[in-house]
Write a protein that binds this DNA or RNA. Structure first.
Lengths: 142, 142
DNA sequence: ATAATTGCAAACAATTTGCATTCAG
DNA sequence: CTGAATGCAAATTGTTTGCAATTAT
């Protein structure tokens, strides 16, 4: 597997090791798409029941620093992790909690504005936009 | 004070009461601009030291539901509360943690796009946009 | 050997809940 | 008197830390 090799190499360069736990966490993040540390832990423990949640946290932190995964704070509670390739913006409905994804390119205009105006480099792949979804808007009307 | 009367009335209509604690919490949020429940508690306790943090949480939740205050999740940790009138978007630098504010109007284009495309009503006053601030970008270059 | 990694228990921070007491209408 | 609101202690949730035991090189 592509990224597995890459990860092994990156780790080795830094005097770190590739371990079954790390592989399992990366696999779980990839399989789940979006997941909290708790959910990732559950997935990993299906294969290796003794892996501790502490290791999940440490590994997610490591993978995040290495740029292999990202996390987003979608409202309250635990953050959601996903693999870095999987880029999109989240639309979080603060009424029903529903989460939709939209392509990052929709933010290109805003990215340009902030770059020019504030020198701020917006990271569209980290983003959660909150508001009211179509369904909840309709229910208000009814 | 304007909002105090309004709040008293709103509460009364719902069979709830205006209490010193509620007034103090609203005042604190207004004075602090942006603050976590913990900070708001500290501010309130300067005046009334026996007010419990549980009451702070309950009151913030109430004021939030009544639309008098809002909260934003600026990254990890506790959310930040501010009064509803005080509208702006947050630029959160994920490198140094710095938080800047920009006018909501800069998002008007995006608001329109999402409304048309997804039927999603973006709430620009709730927003935290993460990325890299000017200073941290410059340091990368150096 | 020796340095990295893990598991476990305990600490911690933020928040919520249950409940008895207090307070206003 | 009755329901609303508060304070306090305890429970919960999400996360981090210290440390001893394990493992790869």
């Amino acid at each position: 597997m592509e990224t597995a090799r890459g990860l092994r190499k990156t780790l080795h360069e830094r005097g770190m090791r590739m371990t079954p736990q790390r592989q399992l966490v990366l696999d779980a993040v990839r399989e789940l798409g979006h997941a909290t540390p708790e959910q990732i832990c559950g997935r990993v423990q299906q294969t290796a029941p003794t892996v501790n949640i502490t290791t999940i946290y440490r590994t997610l932190d490591l993978l995040d620093r290495l740029g292999l995964v990202r996390h987003t704070h979608l409202g309250h509670g635990a953050p959601s992790y996903s693999v870095d390739e999987h880029q999109h913006v989240h639309l979080v409905c603060h009424v029903c909690g529903r989460i939709d994804e939209i392509p990052c390119e929709l933010l290109d205009g805003l990215v340009g504005t902030l770059r020019a105006r504030d020198g701020f480099e917006l990271d569209a792949s980290h983003l959660a936009l909150s508001g009211t979804c179509r369904d909840c808007l309709n229910q208000e009307t009814e």
